[in-house]
Amino acid sequence: MPDFPNIILFAIPFFILAMLVELFVTTRSKFKETKGYEVKDAFASIAMGLGNVFLGFLSKAIVLGCLFLVYEHLRFFTIPVTWWSFVLLFFADDLSYYWFHRVSHECRLFWASHVVHHSSQHYNLSTALRQTWSGSFYSFIFWLWLPLVGFHPAMIMLQMSISLLYQFWIHTEAIDKLPKWFEAIFNTPSHHRVHHGSNPIYLDRNHAGILIVWDKLFGTFQPELETEKVKYGLVKNLNTFNPIKIAFLEWVYMFKDVFTGKKTLKDRWNYVTKPPGWKHDGTGKLSNDLREEWFKTSKKSV
């Protein structure tokens, strides 16, 4: 069994140093229009990150156990641990992440944990640390096909960590657009700023992990527009810096929708599986509805 290091733990000093550098850079006159850092918001994000790391010791055991169960008893092939298998795994993992991330915006069960990451109305490197306390216990199902086809679980966990590490640096306003060739292939700060936008045109776009090509291939790509400054946060913001509330408020709201009021069994089920904003009485608005309204009323060129 290959033994790979936990690169996320080793990267923590880098995270701290990078945030200090960003804090210094974004206080310069060039960045006065950015929101930069807000103390309570940044500490809430850091608290969420620490909670994620702590709970990760438990969730990692569950995830590894499930990956090994599939690998040991159900796999179709055995893919060796070598350079070319890591190349294949890079693309397979990134595709898995794209669909996990997209479903996390289109299914309320997954949104209940993913909403944590979008709850900040600021966009900086501390926002990258605002991670779920619940999602790690069930989101791994999007990666179960990897041990099924023969990738070793340790390889999968390492590549998942590499992907998470890559996504740290793109949470910043300090970097504008990068060279066109890089923007065309990879996820960048510009692409990910769009993803964190609550503007109707930016909702549920750019779900990429490392490669932006998946969004272009599956029709969820949206470039950052000079005419539409990104407004960070949620359509309806949580307006709290309490880590407990940030972690679980959406779960509370979802369960209230499921178990209260007069609804059919199908309606209750739909409150778990339908996208955020769906309502059984037809009064809800989904991101596509908001986007269509924006296109109808906006005179801006897109």
Rank of each mutant, 00 (worst) to 15 (best):
L9M: 05
A11G: 00
M19A: 11
E22M: 05
S29N: 13
K30D: 07
T34I: 15
T34F: 13
E38P: 00
A44C: 12
S45Q: 04
S45M: 02
M48K: 02
G51W: 08
N52L: 01
N52D: 03
F54L: 14
A61R: 15
A61N: 14
L69V: 13
L69N: 13
V70N: 11
E72D: 15
H73Q: 11
T78H: 14
P80S: 12
V81T: 15
T82G: 12
F86D: 04
F86H: 03
V87A: 13
L89T: 01
F90L: 12
F100T: 08
F100Y: 14
H101C: 02
L109P: 00
A112D: 03
V116Y: 05
Q121C: 12
H122Y: 15
N124T: 14
A128K: 01
S134Y: 10
S134E: 07
F137S: 01
S139V: 10
F140K: 04
L144D: 06
G150P: 02
M157T: 12
M160R: 14
L164R: 14
L165T: 07
Y166R: 07
I170V: 15
E173S: 14
I175L: 14
T188C: 07
R193F: 02
R193W: 03
V194Q: 05
H196N: 06
H196E: 05
S198F: 06
R205L: 03
N206F: 11
I210K: 06
V213P: 00
F218V: 09
Q222G: 02
E224R: 12
E228I: 13
E228H: 10
V235A: 13
V235L: 07
V235M: 10
L238Q: 11
L249C: 01
E250S: 02
W251S: 00
V252K: 09
M254I: 04
M254R: 01
K256L: 00
T264Y: 04
L265W: 12
R268Q: 03
R268F: 06
Y271T: 04
K274N: 03
P275R: 05
W278S: 00
W278H: 01
D281R: 09
K285P: 02
L286M: 08
L286C: 01
L290Y: 08
E292Y: 07
E293V: 08
W294A: 04
K300R: 13
K300G: 01
V302T: 15
